[in-house]
Design a protein around this nucleic acid. Structure first.
Lengths: 340, 340
DNA sequence: CGATTTACCGAAAACGTTTTCGATTAAGAT
DNA sequence: ATCTTAATCGAAAACGTTTTCGGTAAATCG
């Protein structure tokens, strides 16, 4: 591997001058600059990034912690982040927390010890304690959270208005005439889950419908899944035969439920109307296609990186920075799982 | 940020001793070792990885270049790689080539200049030139390719036997009585596409069926997609009314085709039997569910990293290394899109 | 008791940059 | 001829670690 020193020796000048020439410093002769550049590219010189990192105290690398990777929404977010980061010359290290708080903690530590320039995170469902995140902030490492966030932590965030979106979804069910609307809410903890539930509840009450807690199905299992949808559908059919609409926390669960319903001869949307959440690609492809809320993963990823980037820049200039909370718009996408 | 120097000063000993104590060198007194460890953790010391990298000439980081991220198979591969890497203390930087040869080239350069310890890559559909890959090898950076590989390049590889799998898929169509079997082969270039086509062709010939080139549909567009399936299905219906089976290059295209068929009143599997490829999760969920070939993404990712890791280790020890080509098993998964 | 071994410690070089601060020379001004 | 200014270069420190190689003192041995 060729170094500045080798170029310097070959040209009979100092390392300093070579370094400055390559960075186009005005205090080196234009002819020398040209000469240096030429021999550098001739020798295929590439700066040793380890040395550069050490000297400049930055690695042009950020860390990303995400609950799951094999997931339409999250992989879209990843794509958005990587695309935006590449534009600004940043690389991204990806870690999967697997919805585990313990792993998440370790991974934060790992990233801090690697001295990444910033951290992007979407929380695991289980994290209720935020010491590790505050450690990042105390460490003076820029941090931005997206989608699954903790409101308490003082950092920038990019989210959707889950409550509003859930309200919109439920309102749609009411508008098309549903009277008994159930809700599959998924796990208890994450803020999204809570907010979507609250939006659902508020829509019912605002429209003069009774809120019945027995119509809300919680997921005991750790991860949202197809199976969960099937199980909840089975339970629902046993316990309530008057339900005519369901607002379901996430598309995959909705698809599981639909599979179970069609297996048991329950017609969608004739017998039960279903609205999902996220707009997975799959939702447009199954039959009947699934009415759902569009969750803009790509945009979320891009914006999360943009916020992080701003903070990194500010930190470098030592100017102070105020946290932003960005709320992205969502749309209700009408399809065949709800009647018009 | 606390450094070795600060610990040394606090304890009145040398930097050397502190460093050695933290690495449990036998030539430092056990009491000193303990003392150093304690004050280090008290001061929350974390080694400066920039300095460590520079000194040890390794970053414990590998690069991964992948054509697309939002993709069931590829995101599974990513998960496998990350999981395995984490076990061995490696981090992974992910880049998306977006099926573009130009981008792929730039990204290779980027990773080399970042001095990653190794590179994992699945080729873009368009890459027919392999200079950039040979550059990696000349650079003495361990390289392993997976799934979309170039046979010519001298490095380790992990793949499936696309030809055999395609043969198996086509044989299944023949076994259930299909006489006119079409093939949607996707783009021309990548090796997988070629091999799957060859497997399809060989199965026909081995079974005494005529190979008809007009039954093979190529994709003009760059990326395999749902739309491509629809388009090909439309064309097929116009051009050939006697086709009773199709082997389709990838599940997403198959699902697009099925959507078009059911829209046009063609019944599956009664009128046309369909076999896909990859076993996307979606394939099990749509109706009718899709018979397909199981492509073990997670395993592929894990094994790709394992091979890379071995090579990295060997390189460190300066012992020589022979490239391995790992071929993973695939299964035909019978579902409702083919009759039994 | 002198010689050898053992246990423990530290000085210093090295990794390859970046950047500050002088130094030198030549040109221009007086 | 002297002084100022501009143009061009380089020495050296610094970033924080790892590791080699000696050095000292105490312990062991003959």
């Amino acid at each position: 591997m060729v170094t500045l020193k080798q170029i310097a020796e070959k040209l009979g000048i100092s390392i300093t001058t070579v370094s400055k020439a390559l960075k186009d410093y005005p205090d080196v002769n234009k002819k020398t600059r040209k000469l240096v550049r030429e021999t550098a590219s001739m020798l295929n010189y590439k700066p040793n990034s380890f040395a550069v990192n050490l000297r400049t105290k930055e690695s042009k690398t950020i860390g990303l912690i995400i609950p799951v990777i094999v997931h339409h929404f999250f992989s879209s977010v990843i794509k958005g982040i990587i695309a935006q980061a590449e534009k600004k010359g940043y690389l991204v290290i990806i870690l999967q927390s697997n919805e585990s708080y313990e792993l998440e903690k370790k991974q934060i530590d790992l990233l801090l010890s690697k001295r990444v320039d910033g951290i992007l995170i979407s929380l695991a469902n289980g994290t209720a304690d935020f010491k590790h995140l505050n450690e990042v902030i105390e460490n003076d490492t820029p941090l931005v959270m997206f989608d699954k966030i903790a409101k308490v932590v003082k950092c920038s965030k990019v989210i959707i208005d889950d409550r509003k979106a859930a309200y919109k979804a439920t309102q749609h069910l009411i508008d098309i005439g549903c009277k008994r609307i159930a809700h599959f809410r998924g796990p208890l903890l994450p803020q999204n889950s809570i907010d979507r539930f609250l939006g659902y509840k508020k829509a019912l009450i605002d429209n003069g419908l009774e809120y019945d807690a027995s119509l809300v199905y919680i997921c005991e299992c750790g991860d949202m899944s197809f199976e969960e949808g099937k199980l909840n559908a089975q339970k629902l059919l046993k316990e309530h035969n008057d339900v005519d609409g369901i607002f379901i926390n996430t598309d995959l669960v909705a698809i599981g439920a639909m599979t179970e319903f069609s297996k048991q001869g329950v017609k969608i949307p004739e017998d039960i109307n279903i609205v999902g959440f996220s707009n997975w690609f799959m939702a447009s492809v199954i039959s009947p296609s699934l009415t759902t809320i569009n969750q803009p993963g790509l945009e979320m990823g891009k914006n999360a990186f943009k916020l992080l980037y701003k903070e990194i820049k500010k930190k470098k200039k030592n100017s102070d920075f105020t946290f932003k909370e960005l709320i992205l718009e969502t749309d209700l996408i009408l399809r065949d799982s709800t009647r018009n």
